[in-house]
Amino acid sequence: MPQIAQLAETYSSQIFWLLVIFGFVFFVIGRGMVPKVMDTVGLRDKQIADDLAAAQAARDAADEQEEAWRKRENENRAAAHALVSEAKAKAAASSEKKLAKVQAAIDTQAAEAEARINSARTKAEGEIQSVAAEAAQDIVSRLAGIEVDKAAASVAVKKAMANG
């Protein structure tokens, strides 16, 4: 077994060269290269995480904007609706007012006309009375030869007309 048989003559060179070469491996590769490789991996992981975060943020922003747009849209719709109904109400009110004005004019005309008719009728009735009194005076003077004055005739006519 050379490991034991050669131990005395080779142990020092084995240990020396192992320390030298493993030292090279540790300091140059382990301390020098490995951290850089791991940094690269860390950097990549970080970049991926950042990209994912950015994508998430962009999505959130888009959602937010859509929400805001929806809200604004609803507001606009409501405002337009209000405008239309206001205009409708205004139009209805104004037409109602006009109608009332016209109605009032018609009513006064009708009332005036009625008053005129009434006054005409009373006047006509007065004339009929005076004509009847004259006629009664005339009839009485012709039939009975009695001269009846105007006042008496008119009283009699009034009495007769009031009786029917």
Partner: peptide, 17 residues
């Protein structure tokens, strides 16, 4: 005073490194 001969063992350590 210690022998540090460059042996085939050291050679293969170097190759591995």
């Amino acid at each position: 005073g210690f022998n540090i001969a460059f042996t085939n063992s050291a050679m293969w350590m170097l190759i591995a490194a």
